[in-house]
Simulated scan of single mutants.
Amino acid sequence: MTDTIASRLNRAGYRAAVPALLAALLFAPAAHADIVPVSPAQCAAMKARHVITPANPVPCSRLSTVSFDYTGFDGATRSGSVVVLDAIAPQVESLFGELLLRSVPLAGAVPLEHFDGDDEKSMAANNTSAFNGRPMTGGGGWSKHAYGVAIDINPLQNPYVAKPGSAQQQVLPPQAAASYLQRTPVRPGQAEDLVGVFYDHGFLVWGGNWKEPIDYQHFEIGSRAFVRKLAALPRAQARAEFERYVARYRSCTGKAAQAQNGDADDDDDVPEDTALRDSCAVRMRR
């Protein structure tokens, strides 16, 4: 005798529950993500809070705010945002969307005007951030953050370490020294598990690979010549140039072919070829 799922539900008295369940699934709020140009009001706040000055290598008119949902360390979904160069904003939106899908925890993500442009205050708050119109740490020119092409993620879990291993070693934020200088085993929110995700979206330089300083939180897109080229090109051309940059990396790793063939999801459980990944990043970044 045939016994359908529907008849079982009806007999169990769940006739009214099924439509409600379907409605809940259909109308559940989708993950929020958005890209908007930095507004005049936000630009004024950035100037007042010492995040940007007239001397900055890119003006507010070339910056975009990328808003997104993320998973907190408590498992709750929250909203955050970063400010980046307009040319890379679509890839940054996609990057944070992938972090959300992977349930990668972030402690927070607000622009640097909330910390008066003070990078150390932002790190102390374990804040994920991008644009900050400041020079490189230690001097020597503008930081990639001043172009909006670098992202610092979870500074507590991924500290900045100057003069590592020496008597003069400095760890920022200082509270990271007790727990996060030991990098294995990798724990939630640490950058080691995220290198491939950042590379896939054009951030082909990771500060965790540096010798001095070691900057575990820091990802950036490439050479200064390439960054200056993006900043000098009109927005549409700069965006197209950056998309080609990302496509070349993905082609090198074979991920572009996987996506075209519909195989990308089939390889989720296959260990990442980190040697190929790192080789392609070195070859493709410019």
Results as ranks from 00 to 15, higher is better:
M1Q: 10
D3C: 11
T4D: 06
A6W: 06
R8C: 02
L9F: 13
N10C: 08
R11E: 12
A16D: 15
A17P: 00
V18E: 04
A20F: 00
A23S: 14
L25G: 05
L26N: 11
F27G: 09
P29R: 13
A31M: 10
H32V: 09
D34R: 13
P37L: 07
Q42Y: 01
Q42C: 04
A44N: 02
T53P: 00
P54L: 07
P57H: 09
P59Q: 01
C60G: 03
C60Q: 07
S64D: 15
T65E: 15
S67P: 09
F68W: 12
Y70V: 04
A76I: 00
V82F: 10
V84W: 03
D86Q: 14
A87Q: 07
I88Y: 11
Q91I: 02
S94H: 12
S94C: 00
S94E: 13
F96C: 07
G97C: 00
G97I: 02
E98Y: 05
L99M: 13
L99S: 03
R102M: 12
S103F: 04
V104L: 00
A109L: 03
A109Q: 09
A109N: 08
A109I: 03
V110E: 10
F115D: 11
D116Q: 13
D118G: 04
D118F: 05
E120Q: 14
K121M: 05
M123N: 13
M123I: 01
S129D: 08
S129P: 00
A130G: 02
T137W: 13
W142M: 01
S143E: 06
H145F: 03
A146H: 10
A146C: 11
A146D: 10
G148Q: 12
V149N: 03
I153H: 01
I153Y: 05
P155E: 00
Q157E: 15
N158D: 03
V161N: 11
A162N: 14
K163V: 02
S166E: 10
S166C: 03
L172N: 09
Q182D: 14
R183Q: 11
V186N: 08
V186A: 15
R187V: 11
A191G: 11
L194D: 01
G202C: 05
L204S: 01
W206M: 04
G207L: 11
K211C: 00
K211I: 07
K211M: 08
E212R: 15
E212Q: 15
E220Q: 14
F226R: 11
R228A: 14
A231E: 04
A231L: 05
A232R: 06
L233S: 09
A236I: 03
A238G: 14
E241G: 10
R244G: 12
V246R: 07
R248T: 09
R248D: 14
S251H: 12
C252V: 09
K255M: 06
A256N: 08
A257T: 12
Q258K: 14
G262D: 06
D263T: 14
A264E: 14
D267Q: 15
P271K: 09
P271H: 11
T274S: 13
S279N: 10
S279Y: 02
M284G: 02
R285V: 12
